[in-house]
């Protein structure tokens, strides 16, 4: 075999490998196209489910697409729950949610912001601070129903608050405090230290600096985070069922120690009755709940844009 032939063979091998290479390159780029398509599919699948869910609930509540009965009427807001679907409404649940959440904010907001101020502005880097930090990130991952068991044991039994609005609000407050702390810390940390130093240089004490300089600068982020925490509390069902919030409440709560129900529990109750009319009422309740959450989240976005600062 001559050297030329050998070379020819070699050249051929090189050529084929280049050919295979270019075909392979197409395939290598094609894999990227597949991933892009799958990526869009995942996103559209998720958002599509959201859309189907909303349309389905709207249809079941108002009969707008299928021509059924409209359950989202004035009576729905103004009637108490009843054994007869035509007379049942969500008045007790809507007021219950309003009272419980107001009280939850009353407990959780000062507590969460104060803890965040302590951790960012006062805490030294010692074992206590590290313990609190690890603890807060752990608490954020505890299932909400476990908070219900805590509330049942501590607030309902030991403190003897009973199955009351007070016990419910305290339980929800403990549930959302870690969220408020994390959001508030982030916002406080974003205030540049030059502002603090300027304040100290003018003779302000530590608390004066926090109150007059740090808090006004970080209030936007604190409010946004707290509003998101509140929207979490509004949708919570399991911890309130666990502390024994009632499912059938045909009256408005008179004081903090009265029994109560909230919108998610009312929805759960109507859903568990094997009757299409009650299921339609549940859909109407869901629409009200989603409308409240949408409003609150829009408010959070508005506040975030309004207070957004660049240093």
């Amino acid at each position: 075999m001559s050297a030329q032939e050998q070379l020819g063979v070699k050249a051929q091998t090189v050529e084929t490998s280049v050919d295979r290479g270019s075909g392979n390159l197409k395939w290598r780029h094609f894999k990227g196209k597949i991933l892009t398509v799958l990526g869009w599919f995942s996103i559209i699948f998720g958002l599509g489910m959201l859309l189907v869910l909303i349309l389905d609930v709207v249809n079941k509540a108002t009969g707008i697409f299928s021509g059924g009965t409209n359950w989202l009427t004035w009576e729905f807001f103004n009637n108490f729950d009843s054994r007869f679907p035509a007379r049942a409404g969500a008045k007790a649940a809507i007021y219950g949610t309003l009272y419980t959440i107001t009280l939850t904010i009353f407990f959780a907001f000062p507590l969460g912001v104060a803890a965040a101020i302590y951790l960012e502005e006062y805490a030294k880097d010692n074992w206590f601070t590290r313990l609190v930090e690890i603890n807060i990130s752990n608490l954020a991952a505890v299932p909400s129903i476990i908070y219900g068991l805590l509330g049942l044991q501590v607030f309902v039994r030991w403190f003897a608050f009973g199955r009351s609005i007070l016990a419910g609000a305290l339980t929800l407050a403990l549930l959302v405090v870690p969220i408020i702390i994390v959001a508030s810390r982030e916002s406080i940390r974003a205030v540049p230290s030059s502002l603090r130093q300027a304040s100290y240089a003018l003779g302000a004490t530590r608390w004066q600096t926090v109150w007059h300089v740090v808090l006004p600068q970080s209030i936007g982020g604190i409010l946004t985070g707290s509003i998101l925490a509140v929207s979490r509390a509004i949708g919570e069902t399991a911890p309130l069922i666990t502390i024994g919030a009632l499912t059938f409440v045909p009256f408005l709560p008179r004081n903090l120690f009265d029994v109560f129900t909230v919108l998610p529990i009312q929805i759960f109750n109507w859903t568990s009755r094997p009757n299409d009319d009650f299921r339609a009422l549940a859909a109407a309740g869901i629409l009200v709940l989603l409308a409240i959450l949408l409003t609150i989240n829009a408010l959070a976005i508005y506040l975030r844009n309004r207070y957004q600062k660049r240093y």
């Binding site: 079941k60 979490r232 949708g235 998610p264 299921r279 709940l289």
Partner: peptide, 17 residues
């Protein structure tokens, strides 16, 4: 938004849809 929908709503959707 999907993570912000209350879980009772998902439960309703799973059962009735």
């Amino acid at each position: 938004i999907l993570a912000g929908i209350p879980t009772v709503v998902y439960g309703y959707f799973a059962l009735t849809f």
